[in-house]
Design a protein around this nucleic acid. Sequence first.
DNA 1: TAAATAAATTAAGTATGCTTAACTTATCGG
DNA 2: CCGATAAGTTAAGCATACTTAATTTATTTA
Lengths: 222, 222
Amino acid sequence: MKSISQEDYIKRIYKMQSGNKSSVASGSLAIELGVSKAAVTDMTRKLAKEGLINYQSYKGSFLTRKGERKALDIIRRHRLWELFLVEALNLNWAEVHDEAENLEHYTSEFLINRIDKYLNFPEFDPHGDPIPDKNGKLPKTRKRIQLSKTKSGKDFVVCRVDDKNAGLVDYLGKVGIGIGVKLKIIERLEFDNSVMLKIKKKEIVLSEKIAEKVFVSELKDE
Amino acid sequence: MKSISQEDYIKRIYKMQSGNKSSVASGSLAIELGVSKAAVTDMTRKLAKEGLINYQSYKGSFLTRKGERKALDIIRRHRLWELFLVEALNLNWAEVHDEAENLEHYTSEFLINRIDKYLNFPEFDPHGDPIPDKNGKLPKTRKRIQLSKTKSGKDFVVCRVDDKNAGLVDYLGKVGIGIGVKLKIIERLEFDNSVMLKIKKKEIVLSEKIAEKVFVSELKDE
DNA sequence: TAAATAAATTAAGTATGCTTAACTTATCGG
DNA sequence: CCGATAAGTTAAGCATACTTAATTTATTTA
Ligand SMILES: [Mn+2]
Ligand SMILES: [Mn+2]
Ligand SMILES: [Mn+2]
Ligand SMILES: [Mn+2]
């Protein structure tokens, strides 16, 4: 008895609570999912009854162990599909998100493990997000910061790009930014908080708006 | 506003009416889909309202042009997925049917066309069934007969195997029967209607039950 | 701290896609 | 051609997942 809606609620709660450990308010969950608050009240009660979340009236929700495991499972499917579509069918990373959003709900354990194997058990999806393994374990990630918060003069490698906006991904591709790309920060401009950086001899400037969507980790000894 | 149920009804009606041109009775549709007759009455009314089928009380249903086009579209998705899973992920043809049964409903026009292109616009799926192209056109097929109805002494090529039973597919694989395999009929045994045939020097006997699941077309000049 | 406001829940209702049971229509055998 | 039986429809009801409007609870803020 699985339900797409339930899976989407669980996944959303996972994403909203990861980082800040607090519980997720019904109102914000409603906004994120694009449904009414009444719908959220209904569904959270059901999820609580199934032991997937803890929920108390007027106090919001947070995942139980079981719920978190389930969330990781759906995220695993999503990210493996994304990478598979990029690797096997050559879709570009802006195109895969929406497809994966549907496929994630209709993929058997068997099939997703075959995809995992085909990809040689990858640790990161095309956007740089970590892929849980078949036991729900996430790979270790190095510390990541937004490009907009880096210090001048240091070297970094791009390890994640926010996947919400297809246009953004296109633009970054054009200026040479993608997962694994190395770059050096030349300076941050006080004036508009934009960032000037160098990729393979080429200097480019990114606005704060864009720079905060790109996550990098510092290259220590190189 | 698409619905999996509607798609499954349409596909089923298509399959039931192809061959015999008559209309599909609600009762048999109910049995095939595993739902009650009342459910069929409900749904056929809806489908008729949407112009996908012609339906009259107590007279059964048949697809309109529009409905047929839609059926071919779903079948296209199904068969392309099957072939893709076999080609790209090396699943065997017994394993792909159930996966495709779900994926067919959640694949965008864009994605299925990419899969089509990846496979180089194939005409037949792993079971030998024809794949409609993006305009809903089916490839030409040569005349096919059941192995159980062949004449002794003639040469044939296997062009289709009924995909309903995974065990069957396994068995056929073991004795060397698959799409495109050439064989010669040695004789049909009156006693139990079984068929003795030769594949690459090896002689095997198939029971009538199995032989009627294997479709072949005659090899004329070779 | 009490009224104002924001947040959440309850209540009532909708659409889809099913179920079983009762009833109606069609068909077939004598 | 009529009655038995088979086939199909109608009626009532259930579960899921939503909606809007009214009401309740919680949090601000004056
Ligand atoms: Mn989804
Ligand atoms: Mn991603
Ligand atoms: Mn299906
Ligand atoms: Mn097939």
